[in-house]
Design a protein around this nucleic acid. Sequence first.
DNA 1: TATTGTTATACTCTATAACTATA
DNA 2: TATAGTTATAGAGTATAACAATA
Lengths: 150, 150
Amino acid sequence: MTSSGTRADAGLATGLRISVSRLARRLRVERTAPGQAEPVLSDTQFAALATLEKHGAMSPGELAGHERVQPPSMTRVIAALEEWQLVTRAAHASDRRQVVLTVTPAGRELVARARRRRDAWLARRLNELTPQERATLRAAAPILEKLSQS
Amino acid sequence: MTSSGTRADAGLATGLRISVSRLARRLRVERTAPGQAEPVLSDTQFAALATLEKHGAMSPGELAGHERVQPPSMTRVIAALEEWQLVTRAAHASDRRQVVLTVTPAGRELVARARRRRDAWLARRLNELTPQERATLRAAAPILEKLSQS
DNA sequence: TATTGTTATACTCTATAACTATA
DNA sequence: TATAGTTATAGAGTATAACAATA
């Protein structure tokens, strides 16, 4: 029956939406370590740094587009990241209007530490599951990824 | 081998973290309908309303605790929800310091509409998957739920 | 005195508008 | 003229501190 299939998917959609939203919120909390001797970045600051670390050097305008914020907002984000010496600014080779942003080794390390921290939290939780539950999640991860891209 | 098992989980943690975070972000976008003739609530306002709708009448202090914001912040959230006639305030029966918040039918409807909108988006995406992929997600949902609670 | 909630105030984040420098 | 970026300014959202009402 088509209607039963649709109804089953409606239930699946609700359940999946709730569980995915909750887990994401829980993961976000783990972004910063409590009482760590490292600058506490805001969501946008961290996301910008991570994007720069992943995609390599780019201009403030490109980075603003990536992060879906307006250029003036990115200006302030960059100023903070620069003050903490997580990124550096350089003049563009041929177009002197443009600025080229590059992640410093310290910035790269901060991103890596934050990732390790969240992965470690999740890995600990995963270790409490049965092998079969882990197998299910291993199969589910790429499907979830596909869903977010559509 | 223990080390290989651990390494596999580390990879699973990273992949699952990324896919769950991305899907949650995509779902959050669907909270508001474009160009709808209904008030556009902020994340906190919507979350507070949804909590009240789910758990029933409670005081501002309790609601602030639920949503992990400070009482003064909740005061402002409630003022907005009250202005849009999504919640009502009443005096507590025995303790006159307290205020009792209740969702109005309009508030209940707004929450239901937002849920239906997000569920509909996700259900459409799920319909594009194979039956086997849906089965995997059906098995994964409760496991994800369990992870977020630990 | 302790508790509940509100008001006063400040800080952070983001946006739009106006400006500067360069193409 | 158009583009890249910054500065000026305003509007949300949230926090802490101080206050009022009630227990």
